[in-house]
């Protein structure tokens, strides 16, 4: 499917914001797909890591609507494999932060069933709070 995208200064602003938060230069990505190929959660994702990289390159904010950025488990497989030395997991973190910093949480702690909370190890909850709450 061909989709025409008009790039405005707004798109640039979004790209720059992601670059700034992640400390990476997303435009360096040449879309080889290594990150997607190695991602352990890619089968569950609605877009692949290389697709979110492309959407960010184009400055398209719709990337924030995909569940994929939340399914990233920060396992750093993409990080160690990227031939362009881009830390893709940091880009996912930047995208999550853009949402979380507007005080929009991805998980509602009080909605987790109490018996589930009681059996989770601390480490699971602490890390989920770091990644999914602002």
């Amino acid at each position: 499917m061909i989709k025409k995208v008009e790039i405005t200064s707004e798109n640039d602003k979004f790209l720059n914001k992601v670059n700034e938060l992640s400390g990476e230069v997303v435009t360096l990505c040449d879309q080889c797909g290594t990150c997607s190929g190695g991602c352990p959660l890619v089968t569950e994702m609605d877009i692949t890591p290389s697709q979110w990289m492309r959407l960010v390159q184009l400055g398209l904010k719709e990337v924030l609507d995909f569940k994929a950025i939340w399914l990233c488990a920060s396992c750093f497989t993409c990080t160690v494999r990227c031939p362009r030395k881009i830390d893709v997991s940091k880009v996912a973190e930047a995208l999550r932060q853009i949402i979380l910093r507007k005080a929009i949480d991805y998980i509602d702690l009080k909605a987790i069933p109490k018996d589930e909370l009681a059996c989770l190890p601390q480490i699971a909850l602490v890390s989920a709070c770091r990644k999914f709450t602002g």
Binding site: I112, V126, C129
Partner: peptide, 14 residues
């Protein structure tokens, strides 16, 4: 057990 805190005040993990 420690889980009692996480059960009722999960936000301590923040």
């Amino acid at each position: 057990e420690a889980s009692v805190f996480i059960k009722y005040y999960p936000e301590v993990a923040r």
